[in-house]
C-alpha cells in the first residue's frame, strides 16, 4: 500500500494564542489571582529586602555619622540571613505556582483533549500555558515590586523621618526593581514548565473522558 504524504502546516498564530490565554485568565479569574498572588508575595518580600538594603547603603554613604556606625555593625550578619530567607520564600512561591498550574491542567484536561482532537500540537498547549504564566509573572512581579518598595519606604520613613526622602536611592531601587521583575517572570515561567509539559502529553481520548 502506497503511503500518502502528509505535508501541510499546522499553526497557532501568536496573536490568537495570546487572545486565548488572556480569555482563559479572565474566565478563570480566581486561579489567575492565586498564581499572581504567589509571585506577588515572593517578589514583594524580595523587593522589600532589596529596598531596605538600598536605604541602608544610602544611609551609610550619605547619612549622618552616628547612624553610619550603628548600621555598619550588623550589616554583614543581616545579609546572610536575608539571602536564606529570600531564597526560601522564592522557592515556596515557585512550588506554589507549580501546584496551582497542575490543578489548572487537571481542571482543563477535557478542554486540552478537545483541542488536540481539533488538531492542536503539543507545543500549542505548552505555548498557551506558558503565555498565561508569563502574564501572571509580569503582573505579579510588578505589583510585588511596588508593594515591596512602598512598604519599606514607609517603614524607613517612620524610623528615620524626612532624611529618607533626601537620600532616596532611586537609581539603585530601579535597578533592583528591573532585576526582581525579570526574576519573578522567570520563576513563573519555570514553574509552569512542568505542568505545561504534563498537559501537552495527555492522550486526547483519555483527557476527554477524564471526569473532574
Amino acid at each position: 500500500m502506497e503511503q500518502k504524504k502528509i505535508e501541510k502546516q499546522l499553526s497557532l498564530p501568536l496573536k490568537n494564542a495570546i487572545q486565548m490565554s488572556f480569555r482563559n485568565m479572565r474566565v478563570r479569574f480566581g486561579r489567575a489571582i492565586i498564581i499572581t498572588m504567589s509571585i506577588l508575595l515572593g517578589i514583594a518580600f524580595l523587593m522589600s529586602v532589596l529596598t531596605g538594603n538600598a536605604f541602608t547603603m544610602s544611609l551609610i554613604h550619605k547619612g549622618p555619622e552616628e547612624i553610619k556606625v550603628l548600621l555598619m555593625a550588623d550589616i554583614l550578619e543581616v545579609k546572610t540571613r536575608q539571602v536564606w530567607l529570600v531564597s526560601l520564600s522564592l522557592l515556596v512561591c515557585t512550588v506554589g505556582i507549580v501546584n496551582a498550574m497542575l490543578m489548572s491542567v487537571t481542571e482543563r484536561s477535557r478542554e486540552i483533549g478537545t483541542m488536540k482532537c481539533l488538531g492542536a500540537l503539543d507545543k500549542f498547549i505548552v505555548e498557551l500555558f506558558l503565555l498565561e504564566s508569563l502574564a501572571h509573572g509580569i503582573v505579579g512581579s510588578i505589583a510585588g515590586c511596588l508593594i515591596g518598595i512602598l512598604t519599606m519606604t514607609v517603614v524607613y520613613l517612620i524610623q528615620y523621618g524626612g532624611l529618607i526622602i533626601k537620600i532616596f536611592p532611586l537609581g539603585v531601587i530601579l535597578k533592583y526593581m528591573l532585576l526582581s521583575i525579570l526574576l519573578g517572570t522567570f520563576l513563573a515561567v519555570i514553574g509552569a514548565l512542568y505542568p505545561a509539559y504534563v498537559s501537552s502529553k495527555m492522550e486526547p481520548a483519555e483527557a476527554i473522558r477524564r471526569e473532574v
Binding site: 503511503q3 502528509i6 501541510k8 499546522l10 486565548m20 480569555r23 482563559n24 479572565r26 474566565v27 478563570r28 477535557r110 478542554e111 483533549g113 478537545t114 483541542m115 488536540k116 482532537c117 481539533l118 488538531g119 492542536a120 500540537l121 503539543d122 486526547p204 476527554i208
Partner: peptide, 28 residues
C-alpha cells in the same frame, strides 16, 4: 506510521469529532 505532528494534522484536516458531552471550549 504517523508521528505526533502528522496525527495532529490528520485530526485537524481529515476528521471532525463530535462528542456526547459536546466539549465546546467554555471560554470561547
Amino acid at each position: 506510521q504517523l508521528d505526533a505532528y502528522e496525527l495532529a494534522w490528520l485530526r485537524c484536516r481529515k476528521i471532525g469529532y463530535i462528542f456526547q458531552t459536546f466539549n465546546l471550549i467554555p471560554v470561547m
